[in-house]
């Protein structure tokens, strides 16, 4: 089943985000964008070039940017603010909490260069806690698209979503999983492969690794279901409960601190619905380091082979 995915390399999700903004800008003059001196990296410069009067360059001042975005949104604009995930969430967290979440303002927040796959720049620019931070903002919707197709569609949906949204984007080019006609719905996960022995649940670039791991497991006679949870909050309880009931074993893989990301949120649903064996694959209580993205991912066990190891461990526990 997993073999049906060719996983050809596509664009980085940050680039798809930038292109989606331009599309939005063309069809809706209410769309505005703020950036904090990283527009060439976040790809908001595409919007800035096309619509300069609706592009607000805030300098290297993320806290100010988030609050300005909140002010624009509270005056009726469809406002996006973007920076590296590490900066917009960590430096703007207080503003996201007070001016956006608590105030009920539907700001759209985009964090690029998430996870450890940014590579050479190292841990100060990496974001291994952004899912945790974003999910801790009451009322926020948190989205982590897997490829350019998902990002393009979900950014456009997020624009018209009634509440505040955080979108997690990556730096590196990632494999394309979805065809151009794929439908995405905020809050609804997508089952990518059938499977009966265990379920691999993931988000962002680890979904492709889970598909590769599933193919390897299949060769061993193991039937692995793969689920893309592109929306982390609100989480798709139905797809998780069904997987727990039908496969009795779940491995969550994520490019994030393992004790505060997607896995613990999936575990909550499993505990509340159909308790089953679970394992968690992610970054373990540490910060990564500089290196080529593929080297960093390999060293910190974010590859299909590593996912397969964790999957076998989970299955062994299931079999008791």
């Amino acid at each position: 089943m997993a073999a049906k995915y060719e996983l050809k390399l596509g664009a980085a999700t940050r680039e798809a985000f930038g292109k989606a903004l331009v599309e939005l800008g063309k069809t809706d003059e209410n769309v505005v964008v703020c950036d904090a001196d990283l527009s060439k990296s976040t790809f908001t410069h595409l919007f800035g070039k096309e619509f300069p009067s609706r592009f607000f360059s805030c300098g290297i001042a993320e806290a100010n940017m988030v609050s300005i975005g909140a002010g624009l949104a509270s005056s009726g604009k469809i406002a996006f603010v973007a920076s590296f995930s590490a900066f917009v969430l960590n430096k703007g967290f207080e503003q996201l909490r007070v001016n956006v979440a608590y105030s009920g303002i539907p700001l759209k927040v985009v964090g690029t260069h998430s996870g450890i796959s940014i590579g050479e720049d190292g841990p100060s620019q990496m974001s291994v806690e952004d899912i945790s931070l974003a999910c801790s903002l009451a009322g926020f919707t948190v989205i982590s698209p897997v490829d350019e197709v998902a990002m393009f569609s979900l950014v456009k949906q997020a624009a018209y979503h009634p509440g505040a949204v955080f979108i997690r984007a990556g730096r590196v080019k990632v494999p394309v999983i979805y065809g151009p006609d794929q439908k995405f719905e905020i809050g609804k996960g997508i089952q990518l492969t059938e499977g009966t022995d265990l379920t691999l649940i993931s988000t962002g670039l680890m979904v492709a690794e889970c598909l590769k791991a599933a193919a390897a497991l299949e060769a061993e006679g193991i039937s692995a279901r793969v689920i893309d949870l592109h929306t982390i909050k609100p989480i798709d309880r139905d797809i998780i409960a069904k997987a727990a009931a039908e496969t009795g074993c779940i491995l969550v893989a994520e490019e994030h601190l393992v004790d505060s990301g997607l896995g613990v949120r999936v575990a909550q649903v499993v505990a509340e619905t159909n308790p089953c064996v679970m394992e968690f694959h992610g970054i373990n209580n540490t910060y990564a380091e500089s290196g080529l993205p593929e080297e960093v991912l390999e060293k910190y066990k974010m590859t299909a082979a590593d996912v397969a190891v964790s999957a076998r461990k989970a299955l062994a526990r299931k079999k008791g």
Binding site: V32, N64, S67, I68, G71, A73, S74, G76, A79
Partner: peptide
């Protein structure tokens, strides 16, 4: 109320967003 406040230091930036929106409009 235009804003929920209480955590100091954030109101001026929020006001700038409202002021920029007014200029655009």
């Amino acid at each position: 109320l235009e804003a929920s406040t209480g955590s100091l230091g954030v109101g001026l930036s929020l006001g700038l967003g409202m002021a920029e929106a007014a200029k655009l409009d």
